[in-house]
Design a protein around this nucleic acid. Structure first.
Lengths: 174, 174
DNA sequence: GTCTATACTCCGATAGAC
DNA sequence: GTCTATCGGAGTATAGAC
């Protein structure tokens, strides 16, 4: 399922800015946000770093666009499923497929004013649909996020089986 | 309840190193890890930045000590409780009391070889005691962590009531 | 244990020509 | 839309004297 047109964060970007954004995704996923620099991004594009500022006003503006893009894509990746078990499975998979983008989109502060209005809510709405209750939805999302981020950060003790823990989580919320 | 002597990460530090560590906590909680620099830490102590290297070999070594200290203190803060509801409540409170230390200790990669052996397990053992099952414990911890970190990062939509979500979580695991 | 001096690297961002 | 040149700053860390 696709994101509504009016929520698509890319809709107002120039074609070249979209290319820059796509390259930023590549570098982000390869190096992580902290080591993505305007210089490394420019290298990826084969241009000089100062040229980037013709397309994005600052590195932070680029970050906001990446986050918006992530909200859109994660929302799309999780939407076609129904039921708590399938939702949780899809959430885990989409995060694992783009770990650095997931981390960027869900960690640290969020400048809501810079996002398309309604995008954040739309991105999380599958949890509401699957649970039928706002607080239940929020609790399930938080639990799934905790699992994902601890797994991405390698925080579960070595040798532990996350699969069984995921099953446990689904059981409690199923 | 206090941490076993042999797990206390501070036990091998010189008195002066402990003072440096204490100052690092202050600066960390005030500025966050990314903006804690060797210079700002030195300023807090009223000494010059290079002097710090007499006590800690690198900034990363300092980070490891802070994380170990956090594991000890969070373990102590959560241990005297029994039952899922009280555990979750204590976990939330101890994180909220030292948000930046919590973030440092639970986010990003962890160099386990640099920690006192057994400290990490000891820190998490209250979850095992409260649930009686390893996977249940892990799921509860992940859910609680997800709630805490999203709350600290201001990721719940404005106007939403985290209290009710916390209650929801306790209900499912209670 | 602290100091001064400093090396070295990297960063985001701007100015102005083409 | 891209370039070159550059600013201004920050960061970790080392060397060596006291």
């Amino acid at each position: 399922m696709t994101c509504p047109e009016e929520l698509d964060p890319v809709r107002l970007l120039t074609p070249r800015a979209r290319e820059v954004l796509a390259a930023a995704r590549v570098v982000l996923e390869r190096d992580g946000w902290d080591t993505l620099t305007m210089r490394s991004l420019a290298d990826e594009l084969g241009i000089a770093a100062p040229s980037l500022y013709k397309h994005f006003a600052s590195k932070d503006a680029l970050r906001t666009q990446l986050i918006a893009l992530a909200l859109k894509e994660f929302g799309e990746g999780v939407r076609p499923v129904s039921g708590v078990a399938a939702l949780v499975r899809a959430y885990r998979d989409v995060a694992a497929a783009h770990p650095q983008l997931y981390r960027l989109a869900t960690s640290g502060s969020l400048d809501r004013d810079a996002l398309p209005p309604g995008l954040e809510d739309w991105s999380g709405s599958p949890f509401l649909e699957a649970t039928g209750d706002p607080h239940r939805a929020q609790a399930l999302w938080a639990a799934a996020h905790g699992m994902v981020i601890l797994e991405l950060d390698g925080r579960f003790p070595t040798g532990s089986a996350p699969e069984a823990t995921w099953d446990e989580l689904v059981t409690h919320f199923g």
